[in-house]
Design a protein around this nucleic acid. Structure first.
Lengths: 339, 339
DNA sequence: CTGTTAGCGCTTTCAA
DNA sequence: TTGAAAGCGCTAACAG
């Protein structure tokens, strides 16, 4: 009833323009561009031709308004600089678009930005969210309150409110630590992640637990922030004060930093003098210069699960949250002999 | 006039619900939640209180429909696995959100997906797009036709249709090649990127040009796909057939692959036997295990420019496209003595 | 400063 | 199979 007035300049046509051009009603045009609707072949052809002439593109925004499905999924990632997350993001994006969902990306420079991000998430009426960032219990509860299905990635879900996909730390660290012990290592240095990282703490706790099970205590402990620079700093601090024969880092990037300090600053041989292990399985860890012994997160399986979990919760909002745990795979490298 | 019927479950309230609750008109509610509008302090307070009670969130989708501004920017990146692009993406996202714009992310597994991506871009009525992927002249023209401002990232704009920001290859390669020549290197091996990568070709062409200016031809040339594995393969192929004293790679990641083969497979000393240089300035290139001599792209300046270019074209759609060129900065490493 | 009135472009009953 | 009519939740003149 109201053909577009082209008031902005070269606007693209609306379904009314197409309808007029094709001599059908606007709702017929709408049907032609919607899957699973039945339109007479002849009508469909006329409409398609008219649409091409007018340069018509269905307006997803307008459709979202009425269907209450934006086909948008918010993906929140705290540190894209982590080298592991670009891979996760690429996989998530690939799988989501295969499901017809678009990615609204949010990255955090500082954790304090999270509330502003959540506000935007509510405003855009996303169909769901996959979050790889710290979320307080209150923030997780907000998703329930707003009716937005939430899947946490490598973060524990606060008592069943949110679904989550995690790479379990215990079995991986057990493989690493037990192997090192078996190979005769006794003096361990630990490089933890930031205190507010649940996965980081879980990994270090698991490592410590295995040591204690063997009647050992770590010789030294330092904290980093998952960055290479912090791996360098932590290792310098540790070897300045202690003599040890194994370093266990909470992630690969810090482990690579440790390797760099040991070999290029301290003149120590790896693994002859000191063994080093990490966690994640990032690409550079496998490069010949490092060949780090580590545990690789099953990114394919985890991202697949994250998307699948999200889809089912979008389809059935009432469904209870699920916590999925994946085991990492040992990647035997050259930086640690494992008994 | 039409309070929400809560038909889905826990829907969040609409501006009508708030209006009724606060005893004002719906448009007053709208004003309260829009910057730059004047509302009596008392009214504003009443509305805010009512909004909190109702759990009201402005609906960005509905606002977009009428303002014809979605505040969405499409960001298209072809290979997030490139190690340089996560950094670019993080910076772009940070700057865009600082400008009140949201990122709709598209990644390409294969270049053939691009048309499907463009279709989605049109449907979501994005305010603009920043693209780091190959776009044909026709595809670039489509942006003009659809009225979507386009900024190409590290891709040349097809005769003034699209704006672009690029890291210029010539001056960087000149620093590298002239330095190597000055240090007495004469037998060069080149590792190019994929043939359809404009930046890759520009870098290798620039390197070749400097060699020719010195009366030299490359001893060997191989093509990779910017990945570490392809750097390994190219280097193996080159050194199997030729004796050389310098390798010039089209990007850092392949250069790191070259280093790995030279040192860990061929038993050659770098830079004593063979010098290696790259391009980009990715993080691992600076790590002690590599200390690659390279040219760093000014990511901050480039992403800043990309966003600024996009903003001005959004503000003034008639404005002609601009091509911005940035010079890279030499990062003297330990893999190549530069005369 | 506030309310009234029209839509933005589409989907969705409901009839025909 | 198609069309008419009624909104989705909001912004944007225009009065008052």
């Amino acid at each position: 009833m109201n053909p577009s007035r082209h008031h902005g300049g070269r606007q693209c046509g609306t379904s009314y323009d197409v309808a007029r051009e094709a001599g059908v009603s606007q709702s017929t045009v709408s049907r032609v561009f919607r899957p699973g609707t039945s339109v007479a072949p002849a009508t469909r052809a006329r409409v398609m031709a008219a649409a091409a002439r007018v340069g018509y593109r269905p307006n997803a925004i307008a459709a979202s308004l009425i269907t209450r499905r934006s086909n948008l999924v918010a993906v929140v990632i705290s540190n894209l600089t982590n080298l592991h997350y670009p891979e996760v993001l690429a996989e998530l994006t690939r799988r989501l678009s295969a499901e017809g969902l678009r990615v609204l990306l949010f990255t955090l420079s500082t954790e304090s930005e999270i509330d502003a991000v959540l506000d935007q998430i509510w405003r855009y009426r996303v169909d769901g969210a996959i979050v790889a960032a710290r979320l307080s219990a209150k923030q997780q509860a907000a998703f329930v309150h707003e009716g937005v299905p939430l899947v946490l990635y490598n973060r524990p879900g606060h008592d069943g409110i949110a679904s989550s996909v995690c790479c379990e730390a215990a079995s991986g660290e057990q493989l690493l630590i037990d192997g090192l012990l078996c190979a005769g290592r006794r003096r361990f240095g630990l490089i933890a992640g930031p205190a507010d990282s649940a996965v980081g703490e879980a990994r270090i706790a698991a490592a410590r637990a295995r040591l204690e099970a063997a009647g050992l205590l770590p010789v030294a402990e330092e904290r980093g922030d998952f960055s290479h620079a912090s791996g360098l700093a932590a290792t310098r601090a540790i070897i300045a004060a202690h003599r040890l024969d194994a370093i266990v880092a909470a992630n690969d990037v810090m482990a690579l930093g440790a390797l760099d300090v040991l070999r290029h600053e301290a003149g120590l041989a790896v693994p002859a003098d000191v063994a080093v292990v990490g966690f994640d399985g990032v690409a550079p860890a496998a490069w010949p210069a490092y060949r780090l012994t580590t545990v690789r997160q099953p990114v394919e399986a985890m991202t697949d699960a994250a998307v699948r979990l999200l889809l089912t919760r979008i389809a059935e909002p009432g469904r209870p949250a699920e916590q999925l745990l994946f085991a990492g795979a040992l990647v035997p490298g050259a930086t640690a002999p494992l008994g």
